[in-house]
C-alpha cells in the first residue's frame, strides 16, 4: 500500500522519474506508452459497455441493469488506474535496468469479464421482463 502511495505521487511528478537511472532507448518508452494506451482503450470499452447495458437492455429489472452497468464501470475505473500505475512501474524498471514488473491483473480482468458475460447471458435469458 505504501508502494502504491509512492507511485501515485510519481504520477504527478515527472521530474522525479527522470532522476532515476538512465534514459532507455526511446523506442522502448514508446512501446510502453502504446501498452498504456491499449489498457486505456480497454478501460474506455468497459465504460462504454456499462453505458450500453443501461441503454440497450431497458426491459431488464432495475437492480440487474444498474448492477451490471456499475460492475462494468467499476472494472473500467480499475483498469484505467492500473494502466497508469503499470506504465509508471515499467518506466521506472526500464530506467533502473531491472526486470519488468509482473502482474496478475490481466488474469483477474479476464475472470471478471467472463463472469459479467455469463451473468449477462443468464440475465437476458431469465430476467427478461422480470
Amino acid at each position: 500500500m505504501i508502494e502504491f502511495a509512492r507511485n501515485v505521487r510519481l504520477w504527478f511528478a515527472p521530474e522525479e522519474v527522470r532522476q532515476e537511472g538512465t534514459t532507455p532507448d526511446y523506442r522502448f518508452s514508446l512501446a510502453n506508452e502504446r501498452t498504456f494506451l491499449a489498457w486505456l482503450r480497454t478501460a474506455l470499452a468497459l465504460i462504454g459497455g456499462g453505458f450500453a447495458v443501461d441503454q440497450f437492455l431497458p426491459d431488464l429489472r432495475w437492480g440487474w441493469r444498474v448492477g451490471l452497468a456499475l460492475a462494468l464501470l467499476a472494472a473500467g475505473v480499475l483498469c484505467s488506474l492500473r494502466a497508469v500505475n503499470h506504465w509508471m512501474r515499467c518506466e521506472r524498471a526500464m530506467r533502473r535496468g531491472e526486470d519488468l514488473p509482473v502482474s496478475r491483473f490481466p488474469a483477474l480482468l479476464s475472470v471478471v469479464v467472463a463472469v459479467v458475460a455469463v451473468a449477462m447471458v443468464v440475465v437476458v435469458l431469465v430476467g427478461w421482463e422480470g
Binding site: 504527478f12 486505456l40 474506455l44 465504460i47 475505473v77 484505467s80
Partner: peptide, 21 residues
C-alpha cells in the same frame, strides 16, 4: 517519453467519465 502528468491526465478524464456514467 510520455510525461506522467499527461498519462495521469488521460486516466483522470477516463475515470471522471466513468463516474459521470
Amino acid at each position: 517519453a510520455l510525461a506522467p502528468r499527461q498519462a495521469t491526465g488521460a486516466v483522470l478524464c477516463t475515470i471522471a467519465i466513468a463516474l459521470c456514467a
